[in-house]
């Protein structure tokens, strides 16, 4: 975009920055800043239940699980768990499968995310206009969001079945292939299959969020754009996209985190096979747990957290100047 943005207003919202920037502040400012015992009590009382639950049932187990990463912790001998420092990490990085798994994880995230985003965006754009039965259409098209990843995996495993699968049958009928492809038996086609399933599942999330964001763009902005004689495409890129840019960026971030942490579909469809060729980090972690290599599984978990935190930090830094430019 070379043109100057038509919009000056920016939706306030941010991820890391604390919750100020509420529109229409002013009257509340002075009150918000004064700290009295009563306010302290309310903060504590309102926040305590959430803090307790998350602390006891999330952080405590995570921290005590994390220390297994630095011990030898194996099913074959759980009595003797000496500290081994970074040995488990070394084992992971020197594993011959590590390269494949790392690459797969990147492919899984990128190849799932991009089509989800594009189709989701298109769907949202085209659903923004009212038409008859739009409500019904939304209800019908958005439902994959409500299904569990595991179940979606099972559903697609059945459809991609090499012998009785409906996808082969349709492709043969259409004339695209002569005989059935054993989808889940070949690393490349298996990866295609799991990604297709994930795209099918994830489009909805983008569509809903983007549709919601689009509907929040004030009508007067479009009117202004129209008065300026902007074309539809230009309106889209000069008005709409900048206005919802922050939402888009944060949605993408959230999806990256979720997709990476989402072993369910792969686990149900291929279990990481054939020959470990469709494993991503999280499915590998499940395999390690099932084999009784708890130390390694825990180390993998820490690696995932580290990658995601570094990624999020860089990502947030990267989208920040962008925002300033718009605003």
């Amino acid at each position: 975009m070379v043109q100057k943005p038509l919009v000056r207003r920016r939706r306030p919202s941010s991820l890391a920055a604390s919750s100020d920037g509420v529109p229409g502040e002013g009257s509340g400012v002075s009150r918000r800043r004064t700290f009295t015992a009563r306010r302290g009590f309310i903060i504590l009382a309102f926040f305590l239940p959430a803090a307790l639950f998350v602390g006891v049932f999330t952080y405590y187990p995570i921290v005590s699980g994390a220390q297994m990463a630095f011990r030898r912790w194996q099913l074959s001998n759980l009595i003797d768990n000496p500290w081994v420092g970074f040995h488990n990490f070394v084992t992971i990085f020197t594993d011959p499968s590590f390269g494949t798994i790392a690459l797969n994880t990147v492919i899984w995230v990128v190849a799932s995310l991009v089509p989800q985003f594009i189709i989701g965006f298109a769907l949202a754009l085209w659903l923004r206009r009212r038409f008859r039965f739009r409500g019904l259409y939304q209800a019908l098209v958005f439902f994959p969001w409500a299904i569990s990843g595991f179940l979606i995996g099972i559903l697609f495993r059945w459809m991609f079945n090499g012998e009785f699968g409906v996808i082969n049958d349709i492709l043969i009928k259409v004339g695209l292939i002569d005989k059935g492809i054993p989808w889940l038996a070949d690393p490349t086609t298996a990866m295609v299959a799991v990604i297709v399933a994930n795209v099918w599942y994830g489009v909805t999330f983008f569509a809903i969020i983007i549709l919601a964001a689009l509907q929040s763009v004030p009508e007067e902005l479009f009117e202004a754009a129209a008065l300026d004689g902007a074309s539809r495409t230009r309106t889209l890129f000069a008005v709409t996209v900048p206005y919802i840019a922050t939402t888009l960026a944060l949605t993408v971030l959230l999806r990256v985190i979720w997709i990476l942490n989402f072993p369910d579909i792969i686990w149900a469809m291929t279990g990481g096979g054939p020959a470990n060729q469709t494993h991503i980090v999280t499915t590998w972690m499940i395999t390690m747990t099932q084999n009784g290599n708890y130390g390694i599984a825990s180390a993998l978990g820490l690696i995932i957290v580290a990658i995601l935190m570094v990624f999020s930090a860089f990502y947030l830094l990267a989208i920040r100047p962008n925002k300033r430019q718009i605003g």
Binding site: L75, S76, A185, P187, P274, A275, N276, Q277, N291, N293
Partner: peptide
């Protein structure tokens, strides 16, 4: 033996590697 499950995982992956010509 204590490494039997470990062996199973490795052996299964190896066979599949042969089946897909890797």
């Amino acid at each position: 033996v204590s490494w039997w499950t470990d062996w199973g995982t490795k052996a299964d992956a190896d066979i599949q590697s042969v089946l897909i010509n890797k």
